[in-house]
Design a protein around this nucleic acid. Structure first.
Lengths: 246, 246
DNA sequence: GAGTGGTCTAGACCACCGG
DNA sequence: CGGTGGTCTAGACCACTCT
């Protein structure tokens, strides 16, 4: 039965439930609360912190959703076994790698307006043939090895990529700066053989397998903001997903 | 501004927030509430249904977590654009396909106790060399085409696979029947070239790309129940994931 | 300023689990 | 049976967005 020390700052703009969730998460990843260990019950924890029970529950729910805690009615809440993996999050590969301490380099191969093909039109909810930004980039990891070919499409009606330097910053980072709040993304992950052009860019053999990802991202207005077709070298990248039953 | 008709059954054991979420989801999927359309505000909806606002919020939150709704403070709640895709859920491939109306056939290639190798021992939290169930299966889609080679490992200390017919039912279905409640699973999705044995089983060319998935599943006690290394034919299968920022 | 979602409180009753 | 999480109520104040 574990009860890590948690401190609250009621003058902070950070919500109380989030402060609690953050500190609980730190206690779990640091090992202060070990795998399989049980937490103090919700009501006691709430009282100890001077919080109401719903607020305490909200804090715990955050970690349940991350797959770090498991609740059982009548029994209690405990830490899931197994090492904690970093989650796939709503960032581009650039931010992903930057966060992981890598220093990714990017080459822009193409950045221009093209007419939307059928799939792009459908995904971005624009008319067939309507001009959309086409952005093809080659991404390298720290050592200079090519990692991925990324092809993004953005509706020209809501984004202007004309003057943006996407070798200096990631696409998602730019979109955030431009005021887009990405809330939802739908990804489909598959595999296929490398194509000749890609083989040259990625320095792969013919017949090499590639990991592919298609993604459509939506902002907080529900609009499709970006659609991408990407190909990764499978030795250098994989997608980690945590599924939680609720 | 849309307000679908929702009926509540207060005598039902199904939670009220869930009844609301279900009916809202149906209204969205069916198109009764169109993409981009705004919902009535939380307080009004709650009053109309005779619910408290927190309960109404909980119902909406379910659909926000599924990536179907987007909330904006000061503005409202609206339906995300784009067609709704079926989610990856905590079921085995068998259940997945069965639910999709396919009738998968399965051949068990191997079902015996083996000593845990390093990766299995780590994932299942058992000692190196400890006996674990090794289950190798070949899965076919309706037409008889081979779809995937699946290799699962289960700790013999908590599961007994000695007498189980896993050609008749899926692994996850069996685990549920045996009292295991799978709550969390961590998956890693990648790609690689087909191996000779697999090529024969899956009727693929040499050098064909395969989609791979490793998964460790945990039950509601936080214990690792199953670890699997699987390979899929990419033309026949892909992983669809919805990411939601919260 | 009016309207929205975001957070928080202080209770209540219930369903389920274990001893 | 006692203890736990699951659900639900009826409010409150705040932050943000739009007009």
């Amino acid at each position: 039965m574990s009860s890590p020390r948690i401190t609250l700052d009621r003058s902070s703009p950070v919500p109380l439930y989030f402060q609690v969730a953050e500190q609980l998460e730190r206690a779990i990843v640091s090992g202060e609360i070990g795998a399989g260990e049980r937490l103090e019950n919700e009501i006691t924890m709430a009282q100890d912190l001077g919080l109401s029970r719903p607020t305490m529950r909200q804090a715990i729910q955050v970690l349940v959703d991350k797959g770090m805690l498991v609740r059982r009615r009548g029994v209690g809440t405990q830490v899931v076994h197994g090492q904690v993996r970093r989650q796939v999050e709503l960032t581009s590969l650039f931010d992903d790698l930057a966060a992981a301490g890598q220093h990714p380099r990017t080459t822009v191969l193409e950045q221009l307006l093209v007419p939307a093909d059928e799939q792009v039109a459908e995904q971005l909810q624009v008319d067939l043939g309507e001009p959309v930004w086409s952005l093809r980039r080659l991404r390298f990891i720290a050592g200079g090895e090519p990692l991925a070919v990324m092809h993004n499409y953005l509706p020209s009606s809501i984004v202007d990529l004309g003057d943006v330097d996407l070798e200096a910053q990631g696409l998602y980072s730019y979109l955030r700066d431009a005021g887009f709040v990405i809330r939802v993304a739908r990804q489909s992950i598959g595999a296929r053989g490398v194509r000749p052009v890609e083989a040259r860019l990625l320095r792969e053999e013919v017949d090499a397998p590639l990991l592919t990802m298609q993604r459509t991202a939506y902002d907080n207005l529900g609009r499709a903001v970006e659609f991408g077709r990407h190909a990764y070298r499978p030795g250098l990248y994989s997608f980690d997903v945590t599924l939680v039953d609720r």
